[in-house]
């Protein structure tokens, strides 16, 4: 099976600090890949490079056969790349529902011409997005708080809103940056189920997570990163039980 996202020879350094050292990585449709590694290994930097938040020094990123390097962030998103953020980055001035409403690849008001001259098209587009948002809110158990401000809901629910907002993209490739940090109980189970369901629908997923139990429960495969390099790829069990990697992870 060909990869949904193909990363080849990706390099980036800030002055003397190397955050990506010729990284090769494939993400496959329907599979969840866990990125494991100590702080500073370059996991979030890899996400930023793929999203176009940071420009790489060298290397290629290909999504569904189309090269992404020359594209700005918003165009990558429109091609089916979605992500969540370690520090959430929700819109505090918008309700949960309106946070989601901005998420589709094509938004009702992307074109000003439509805003001014095609009101019926805007209305249809909005209704479609709203139905989609309601569906996602229901699946993630967020329906009761759809009209709440994001500051008024629990941290776990905020994380879930971040995932729900990314789902609006109908992405080919979804990147989750520490979706479980600070989450417990029922929300934990909800996020786990949501991620599983998305993968089952044929999306390639990449997860950065420090919670080893979550990685083990959720990921089909793991990649161990250290100092901007991919050191090993294999089953999560294999990586966790490798004494050399454990030493790198916890230090000596």
């Amino acid at each position: 099976m060909s990869a949904t996202l193909e990363i080849r020879g990706l390099c980036k350094s800030f002055g003397g600090i190397v955050v990506a050292d010729s990284i090769d990585l494939d993400l496959t449709a329907g599979r969840v890949l866990g990125l494991i590694g100590p702080n500073g290994a370059g996991k979030t930097s890899l996400f930023n490079l793929v999203c176009g938040v940071v420009k790489p020094d060298a290397g290629s990123i290909v999504l569904d056969g189309q090269s992404l390097e020359a594209l700005p962030t918003y165009e990558r998103a429109r091609m089916g790349l979605a992500r969540t953020w370690q520090n959430l980055r929700l819109f505090p001035s918008l309700s949960v529902m309106d946070n989601l409403m901005l998420g589709p690849r094509s938004y009702s008001a992307d074109s000003l011409m439509d805003v001014f001259f095609r009101p019926s098209q805007i209305r249809a587009h909005e209704a479609e997005a709203r139905d989609r948002a309601l569906d996602i809110l229901e699946r993630t158990g967020l329906s009761p708080i759809a009209q709440s401000r994001v500051q008024d809901i629990s941290f776990g629910q905020q994380k879930l809103v971040g995932v729900a907002r990314a789902l609006m993209n109908d992405a080919r490739c979804l990147m989750l940056d520490e979706p479980m940090a600070g989450v417990e109980g029922q929300t934990y189970a909800l996020i786990q189920k949501a991620v599983r369901d998305i993968a089952a629908s044929g999306v390639a997923i990449c997860v950065v997570e420090h919670n080893v139990a979550f990685i083990r429960d959720l990921c089909d495969e793991g990649v161990f990163m250290f100092a901007g390099k991919v050191l090993a790829r294999g089953s999560v069990e294999q990586l966790i039980n490798d004494p050399h990697l454990t030493e790198l992870y916890f230090g000596t």
Partner: peptide, 15 residues
């Protein structure tokens, strides 16, 4: 409104 709140997150949604 969203762009004023967080431009980077806004771009990542495809806007």
């Amino acid at each position: 409104t969203a762009m004023r709140d967080d431009e980077l997150a806004f771009s990542m949604l495809g806007r």
